[in-house]
């Protein structure tokens, strides 16, 4: 086991860890996106889906704990690596010109931390209802007595500043994914000339799906969209 532990602490192992935790988080992001997009199918669909999650009990808690662990690992490793990387070049160049790297690659820590801040806000906003106590209040139920997620989302996104913040956060998440998804193939050693398209295109494709998908909800609501069945 010591070899495995050492391996995970090593530079290559840390990359693997970043890639695997990143992949898990990406799975969550995509799952979350698919769940949310049900808002376009109307109140009934979305609220039923939310109730189903709620009713899954230990499974939900397992997933939540798992997600937190993965999230913490991803962030902690990122911070550890960034500190090590800075230490590896104590004296900066007077003139430095980059030839290939991208804005997305250079700003991973920043985009990642902003996304983290957003996640915290998002939890406080919708999940825990700290910022908007009315979202978690007794009255926020639909006709079937379920938590009225659809209504909550509509109310939430009708605020222009909140929607703007969500859109900005999604753009940064997209930026993060653009480099992150492309890199994970390299980090996990998936490299083959015939798979080169993955590395080139996967980051952009995933980022586009996530950004467009996630932003479509607040933007649609700002534009006046109200899901079928929602009574404001």
């Amino acid at each position: 086991m010591s070899s495995l532990r050492n391996a995970l602490r090593s530079s290559v192992g840390s990359k693997t860890l970043m890639a695997l935790t990143g992949l898990a988080l990406l799975g969550f992001v995509l799952g979350h996106l698919v769940g949310n997009l049900q808002i376009f199918a109307g109140q009934e669909k979305l609220n039923a889906y939310a109730q189903m999650l709620k009713d899954s009990g230990p499974l939900l808690w397992g997933a939540r704990i798992g997600l937190v662990v993965v999230f913490v690992m991803h962030i902690a490793t990122a911070i550890r690596l960034t500190l090590a990387n800075r230490a590896a070049r104590p004296d900066a160049y007077v003139v430095q010109v980059n030839q290939r790297t991208t804005y997305a690659a250079r700003t991973m820590l920043m985009s990642g931390l902003i996304v983290l801040a957003f996640v915290i806000f998002h939890l406080l906003h919708f999940t825990l209802g700290v910022t908007h106590p009315e979202f978690a209040a007794e009255g926020m139920v639909d006709s079937a007595g379920r938590h009225d997620v659809a209504k909550m989302v509509v109310l939430g996104f009708q605020s222009i500043p909140v929607s703007c913040a969500y859109v900005v956060a999604q753009l940064l998440l997209g930026l993060h994914l653009m480099h992150g998804v492309s890199s994970l193939f390299q980090s996990l050693g998936v490299q083959h000339p015939q798979l080169a398209f993955l590395e080139r295109g996967a980051g952009r494709a995933v980022a586009a799906v996530v950004v467009i998908g996630n932003c479509s909800i607040p933007l649609a609501i700002l534009a006046g969209f109200v899901p079928e069945g929602v009574v404001l």
Binding site: S11, A87, Q99, R100, M108
Partner: peptide, 11 residues
Amino acid sequence: EGFGNCTNHYE
């Protein structure tokens, strides 16, 4: 040796 880690910049 104190080298940094690869973050796939490909520089």
